[in-house]
């Protein structure tokens, strides 16, 4: 029997792999891909919560479709992730035009 904990641990592992990639990689596109891994981990966690836990409103005000709130939130996460990735890749290409490089350690003009 697969329980909430299985999904949450899987999501946590996926999140940490994405965190590792985001913080260690020097290729900008890989950093963005690792960010997407972290977003996807969050999506899985929220859908798992929506399936396994009870909605906060119970008794008189109970409205059964509210159990799907986690799925709605994950739809918004997917939307925001897509918007962020489009902007991020536009920035990557703009920086590549400017510097002929996609190495993220080269982009340090604002370093104090």
């Amino acid at each position: 029997m697969i329980s909430l904990e299985h999904y949450l641990v899987l999501s946590g592992v996926l999140f940490c792999v994405g965190l590792f990639g985001t913080l260690t990689k020097r290729h900008m596109v890989t950093v963005l891909m690792s960010l997407e891994l972290m977003f996807n981990a969050v999506v899985i966690a929220m859908v798992a919560f929506s399936k396994f836990t009870i909605p906060s409103i119970q008794g008189e005000g109970f409205y059964a479709p509210m159990v799907l709130s986690g799925q709605i939130f994950s739809l918004f996460v997917i939307t925001v992730a897509a918007a962020e990735l489009a902007l991020g890749l536009a920035l990557v290409i703009a920086i590549y035009r400017h510097k002929e490089s996609v190495d993220i350690t080269q982009v340090d003009v604002m370093k104090g």
């Binding site: 999904y7 859908v47 994950s74």
Partner: peptide
């Protein structure tokens, strides 16, 4: 695939 297993077909 995991989302399908969680009954979230639309997502």
């Amino acid at each position: 695939g995991l989302l399908v297993m969680l009954n979230a077909e639309f997502v």
